[in-house]
Amino acid sequence: MKGLTSEHSDHFDFLSKVSERKSKHHYRLVDFKNKQHKTDFLLSQTKCNLEIFPEGLVIVGDFTEKEGVIPVLKSEINSITVVRGKEIIDTFYLSPMYILSKLGVPNRISRHLMVYPSEYRISETRIMLKCQNYQLTLVTSGNRFDRLLRNLKKSGYSGLLKLVERPKINMLDYKNAIDL
């Protein structure tokens, strides 16, 4: 990647094997800005994966013909902002998820008994990495939020994390207000 010294590339030489693996991409790089706040449009909207290591983060994808890996050392990261998507609950009366929700069971458990896929969904999760030389924004499925957060904390990024949770929307509250 442009602007990386040989010291940086030495730390991530072992990751070249990671970029060679063929796997399903779970993330999408939606924004890449360098130090001069210029957006690199070639990197925008690229499918990729985020690999988390105690030494740093690696974004693996098909960015250009020469570069398939963006290494980010832990010492270069200023902050990691994780924005959880909106949680939307739209169940129907006497649905198993509806009954469990009314009994006080958390949505993360009751969602496994939904009848229709539209009863429970989380909009996309955003990850913003602010580094000394550049800024990255990644997007993934809302269901990956908990796993991502757990992996970042386990790898020692707790001090750099900033969490933002969007409010949940319970469509039942709106339906009950209309029925009155």
Rank of each mutant, 00 (worst) to 15 (best):
Y27W: 15
P167S: 10
L43G: 01
D40P: 06
L73V: 03
S6Q: 10
S44F: 00
E7T: 09
L43A: 11
G61Q: 00
L172W: 11
R147K: 10
N34A: 02
N78V: 14
F145K: 07
L172Q: 12
K22Q: 05
R126A: 05
F63G: 00
F32W: 12
Q132N: 09
L129I: 15
L57M: 11
K175H: 09
K168Q: 13
S75Q: 13
S16E: 08
F12E: 02
V82L: 13
L180T: 10
D13I: 08
V30R: 08
L180R: 12
M171G: 01
E76A: 14
D62G: 08
H37Y: 10
I89V: 15
S6G: 04
H11E: 07
D40Y: 14
S110I: 03
K35Y: 11
K38R: 14
L73C: 10
V69S: 09
L172P: 00
N78Y: 09
T125M: 05
Y27I: 01
V69H: 04
I80V: 15
K154E: 10
R144Y: 14
K130R: 12
F32M: 05
I99D: 02
L129K: 07
Q36P: 00
R166V: 03
D90Y: 05
Q45F: 15
E55L: 07
V72G: 01
L161R: 10
I70K: 07
T64G: 00
T140F: 05
I59K: 05
I89N: 08
D10V: 03
P71Q: 10
G68L: 04
D90H: 08
L136K: 03
S44R: 15
L136M: 10
K22F: 07
K24H: 08
P54R: 07
Q45W: 14
R150D: 09
G104Y: 03
